[in-house]
């Protein structure tokens, strides 16, 4: 399986898929889930990241999302950018069908 959780990375956000429709979602500072990475809460350092991930446990228990995990991001000029190709594709949609996925709605 592709390695997508980087435990050593310093800056990370939490993503998951919504249980009901599978949509990619990001965990926000107010404890809810957003469709957009720009709304995500980010944490720095191992402990803060683990704490951020732990905060999502109630929404797993409440059947809102499936399998949340941490992924590495960079904050560039105030924008959150995923480090891996995989997360860039999840954030946008298939690279060969720009009419599909989140990129279609945001275009």
């Amino acid at each position: 399986m592709a390695q997508h959780t980087n435990k050593r990375a310093t800056t990370q956000a939490v993503t998951a898929n919504r249980l009901l429709d599978g949509e990619v979602v990001y965990f926000t500072a107010d404890g809810s889930w957003s469709d957009w990475l720009k709304d995500a809460d980010v944490a720095d350092g191992k402990e803060a990241c683990a704490a951020l991930l732990a905060k999502t446990e109630p929404s797993v228990a409440a059947q809102q999302v499936v399998e949340p995990y941490l992924f590495e991001v960079a904050v560039e000029d105030g924008a959150i950018v995923p480090a891996s190709v995989r997360e860039k594709i999840r954030m946008a949609g298939p690279t060969i069908r720009l009419d599909l996925g989140k990129q279609a709605a945001s275009a």
Partner: peptide, 17 residues
């Protein structure tokens, strides 16, 4: 490939194209 698949390591469709 990585355009859709959760297990993929790399994209395959663009290579085919």
């Amino acid at each position: 490939g990585l355009d859709y698949c959760a297990l993929a390591n790399a994209r395959s469709i663009p290579i085919s194209q």
